[in-house]
């Protein structure tokens, strides 16, 4: 089976128009920007707070938009038409992922501008942010494949929001409760650790391990995507 980028782009264009007319999903894209504007005015300066906005963007834009794009196709019975067309499931998912990716990158870039975040090593931070985006799109894809409606998707995403947006605060209690040390290896925590190191002058050689942990998460989530896809698409 050949992959057609043209068909993926057609789906991307369709989803872009659709999301821009969808108040519910569309507004979740702007939420991180509202918070970023607020932080910008308050003059927030710590990496932890910057990355709360970034992690929130990952959940609300990368994961949630991806998840609801997939769930809505199933809910409204539009997926059937796509499946009967020459478009393969991989092309459909690629089109959606591309939209979620572009939206995430734009929101992150604009939020960084609003909060005046200036990373010491833009290349390393870019790699880390892009890897993270890819991870969260994978997460959104898994959740989108298992949920049947946008409402369900909005509920299912909540615990993940709690874990990934705010979960990094758990590491604060890790001294007292060693079990919480695990939270340090979450992709969101790793990203914050990495960004903090970079801000005090670390180079790629110093933070390669953090990148590797995030990369491992990417691998795990895409293996999960394949497993769930095989199970779910057998209807």
């Amino acid at each position: 089976m050949t992959f057609s980028i043209k068909r993926s782009i057609a789906i991307l264009q369709k989803d872009y128009k659709d999301v821009s007319k969808n108040l519910f999903v569309g507004s979740s894209i702007f939420m991180p920007l509202v918070l970023a504007a607020l932080y910008g005015r308050l003059g927030v300066e710590s990496i932890n707070e910057f990355y709360m906005i970034f992690n929130m963007t990952f959940c609300l834009v990368a994961a949630y938009v991806q998840c609801s794009l997939i769930a809505e196709e199933k809910e409204k019975n539009t997926l059937r038409g796509l499946m009967l067309s020459p478009a393969s499931t991989v092309e459909i998912l690629a089109g959606k992922s591309l939209l979620s990716f572009i939206a995430t990158v734009l929101v992150i870039a604009f939020a960084a501008f609003l909060i005046e975040y200036k990373p010491e090593n833009i290349l390393v931070i870019s790699i880390a942010l892009i890897l993270s985006t890819v991870f969260y799109i994978g997460l959104g894809t898994v959740l989108g494949l298992v949920t049947k409606s946008v409402m369900e998707a909005s509920v299912v995403i909540l615990p993940f929001m709690a874990i990934f947006s705010f979960g990094s605060f758990l590491t604060v209690f890790a001294e007292k409760y060693p079990i919480l040390k695990v939270a340090e290896y979450m992709p969101n925590s790793q990203l914050i650790i990495l960004a903090s190191e970079v801000q005090i002058g670390a180079s790629l050689a110093d933070i390669w391990f953090n990148l590797l942990v995030i990369l491992a998460w990417v691998a795990v989530i895409y293996i999960l995507v394949v497993i769930v896809y095989r199970k779910r698409m057998m209807d």
Binding site: N77, R80, G81, L84
Partner: peptide
Amino acid sequence: IGVLTDNSGLYARL
């Protein structure tokens, strides 16, 4: 192949 089935499968907002 072309298929018309009972449920429309059109994008309502578009």
